[in-house]
């Protein structure tokens, strides 16, 4: 089971890095969604896997529970990841409206390249 899930983590990680390195902003966004999922899965998985034993306290039973700590962390992470991705999504949309491209290498308004055309415009 552990080997299988590690394989899954590895594949998902590779795919998300591949997407993040893309010059296309939409693919980058897909990578961002995916890497959030991978991160959550990793946190959850390294906390130990217990099949079918939710962390619910039953009366009298002192049974073994699933590890509750990573669950709590992942729950928080999912929600924050959602906030991040929705904001980035809208930002990408607005950026496309303003700049007219989705190529991240051309989105260099914040750090302009030093070329004469730019300095002429700014003066």
């Amino acid at each position: 089971m552990e080997i299988l899930l590690s394989l899954l983590v590895g594949v998902l990680m590779s795919v998300s890095v591949w997407m993040l390195l893309s010059r296309n902003l939409v693919k980058f966004l897909f990578g961002l969604v995916l890497i959030s999922n991978v991160a959550n899965l990793i946190i959850f998985k390294v906390g130990g896997l217990t099949v079918g034993a939710p962390a619910l306290i039953t009366d009298g039973g002192s049974a073994e529970y699933a590890n509750s700590l990573p669950q709590a962390l992942v729950l928080t992470a999912i929600v924050i990841g959602f906030g991040l991705v929705s904001f980035t999504l809208v930002l990408a949309h607005k950026a496309y409206q303003a700049i007219g491209t989705l190529n991240v290498d051309e989105m260099t308004l914040a750090e302009k390249r030093q070329d004469p055309a730019d300095s002429e415009k700014s003066s």
Binding site: S6, M13, S14, V15, L21, V46
Partner: peptide, 14 residues
């Protein structure tokens, strides 16, 4: 880079 990142991550989690 992508494949290396995946391999490294898989080893760590395992």
């Amino acid at each position: 880079i992508a494949i290396a990142a995946g391999v490294v991550m898989a080893i760590i989690t395992l």
